[in-house]
Design a protein around this nucleic acid. Structure first.
Lengths: 110, 110
DNA sequence: CCATGCGGTTTGCATTGCAAACCTGTTTGC
DNA sequence: GCAAACAGGTTTGCAATGCAAACCGCATGG
């Protein structure tokens, strides 16, 4: 009989980290977002947003697209399919854990 | 107009960390739990459970009580009021963030 | 030209979380 | 009765992470 906490082991730290959870969750509701937009809504510094995005890209959860808009370089990020699935799965696990705790109720300390 | 992501900044890393979220959530449904019970349901190693508990104790989120049950030493952990509040607050924030993302929908990149 | 700003990336460092070693006492085998 | 195994943890060592700060290339302004 598995406890709901087994799901914790499966929590993907890459997704779970607050800043990245923010980025991913934000991306999940826009088809595409640029760097500065993400910067504003997450409140991260440029440096940290940059490195989190790289990490997410490397993991295949987001796709990065760099182009020039006129003369300004601009970086777009969007969720990959994999990223979308990972995020959905993650929220589901969290939900599951919290719900599961209630089911644990009858258990008592030795 | 604050975005829901401001709540992320407030996510308490101490609580957010998966293993500790497990410990705290488990504790939230038993008035008291012993070390080995926590060990089983979280699936952590003794060493890591020990250090997570210490950290939670230092932060004032759990209270540790050590006694002898016959000849065996046994360690009990229970949530402090502060711990209970922190956990509740944490789940609330997470909920808020996920819900909030949907409200972000109309925003678009650029 | 020099400096100031924009749009990021890279670097350095302190903090973490994990695995493995260790510790104190108790029980078991012989 | 003494060595070995076990129970219940704690401490240590190390690799990885996240953050702040420094850096970089290009473009515009004085």
């Amino acid at each position: 009989m598995p406890t709901p906490f087994e799901h914790l082991a499966a929590l993907n730290r890459l997704v779970h980290e607050p800043s990245r959870l923010a980025i991913l969750t934000a991306l999940s509701v826009c088809e595409k977002a640029d760097f500065l937009f993400l910067l504003n809504i997450t409140g991260l510094t440029k440096g940290n947003l940059s490195s989190h995005l790289s990490k997410l890209e490397q993991a295949g959860l987001v796709a990065i697209e760099k182009k020039f808009e006129g003369k300004q370089p601009i970086t777009y990020a969007m969720l990959t399919l994999e990223g979308r699935e990972a995020l959905t799965e993650h929220w589901k696990r969290l939900e599951h854990i919290r719900k599961g705790a209630r089911a644990l109720k009858p258990l008592k300390a030795t």
